[in-house]
């Protein structure tokens, strides 16, 4: 790793001020993504500010109305083991448990998880191959290169990468909010607006601005929560990023769907919500497989696979269907 300075943040206001005035400063939480990027020279901060000592940011609170507030410094393993998280939103616990490994989950924070950068191999290649995300204007090696693991929705000629977080897919399905603190106070970003599509500026992953600290993720109370499931398909059974994953949550009357929430991972630069399918699923019977399939198909009209990942389109439809059925089995 290159040389850098390290200091500890004692309070949030000072951390935010330091971050705002110093473009070469990065926060470090678990370090499990940032240190990997630094070793691969895909991030070269000159100063790291250790935020792990900031007070009140590791709490997992079950809000009395049925929602959750998860502190940005809460560790993946603690959130996945939390009894209320498991009871109220199994999809969150499952998305966390299907990610990374036991050791990494003990280290990795929720804030760091949703900010993790893409696993596109060209982005992390230390030899500086063309990659607009790492160096604006240098091109995209994946567009006509190895793109089996890349996007089928929402990509641009500038970048075809996917977002690798699992729990972000669950948060997107559940309409969570990212609570962010800056110099002028707090703002609450709807999860669907937090991650960006690449467009012409793939170097920016999220709506977070310099001088902003994520303090928590809030999951609102909702009738679709308990009947929820996360399904992840990958090249090996465990300790691997998703090829395609789906988070599904349902509210039902008997076997009839009253409302459905469905989001895919591994298919776009952000968690990909299937809003057309959600509308089409309203009123469908969980036992009518053909109706479920055609409802899901409405969200695939704009799928644009790349040369190497055509298989993801059919895989994503099937993963969506199976996730819905498994959520339905909990209804």
């Amino acid at each position: 790793m290159h040389r850098f300075a390290l200091s500890r943040a004692g309070d949030a206001a000072m951390a935010i001020a330091a971050h705002a005035r110093d473009p070469a400063l990065a926060f470090i939480a678990g370090g499990t993504d940032l240190l990997g990027l630094m070793k691969d020279r895909a991030a070269l901060p000159e100063r790291l500010l250790d935020i792990n000592g900031l007070p009140d940011m590791a709490r997992i609170e079950a809000v009395p109305d049925g929602g959750l507030r998860i502190g940005a410094l809460a560790r993946m393993s603690d959130v996945a083991a939390d009894v209320e998280v498991r009871r109220r939103f199994p999809v969150i616990a499952e998305a966390l448990l299907f990610a990374a490994s036991g050791q990494l989950r003990n280290m990795a924070s929720i804030g760091g998880n949703i900010l993790q950068r893409t696993r596109c191999p060209y982005f992390r290649d230390g030899d500086d191959l063309p990659c607009n995300k790492r160096r604006a204007g240098s091109g995209c090696a994946a567009l006509r290169g190895l793109n089996r693991n890349h996007a089928i929705f929402g990509w641009s000629e500038a970048c075809v990468a996917t977002h690798a977080s699992d729990v972000a897919v669950a948060f997107a399905a559940l309409d969570a909010h990212v609570i962010v603190r800056g110099r002028s106070g707090e703002r609450s970003i709807p999860f669907g607006d937090f991650h960006r599509l690449p467009g012409d500026t793939p170097q920016r992953d999220t709506a977070l601005e310099r001088g902003e600290l994520i303090v928590a993720v809030e999951v609102p109370a909702q009738e679709a929560g308990r009947a929820s499931h996360y399904l992840k398909v990958r090249d090996r059974q465990s300790y691997e990023f998703a090829l395609v994953s789906a988070a599904a949550a349902l509210a039902t009357d008997g076997r009839r769907i009253r409302s459905a929430r469905l989001a895919l991972g591994g298919v776009a630069h952000k968690p990909w919500r299937l809003t057309a399918a959600e509308t089409a699923l309203r009123g469908a019977s969980l036992d009518d497989v053909e109706a479920l399939k055609s409802a899901i198909a409405t969200s695939f009209a704009d799928a644009r696979p790349l040369a190497g990942n055509g298989f993801k389109v059919e895989l994503a439809r099937r993963v969506s269907l199976r996730a819905l059925q498994s959520a339905g089995a909990r209804a």
């Binding site: 470090i28 070793k39 792990n52 050791q103 003990n106 280290m107």
Partner: peptide
């Protein structure tokens, strides 16, 4: 691997298993 991918560097910090290649010594005060 020195990248969090193999587990060979697993140690316990305050009783929890972690990967020692993916954290800084100076953060362990």
């Amino acid at each position: 691997c020195d990248r969090g991918e193999c587990g060979a560097c697993t140690v316990h910090i305050d009783g929890r298993r972690v990967l020692s290649c993916m954290t800084l010594a100076a953060m362990q005060e």
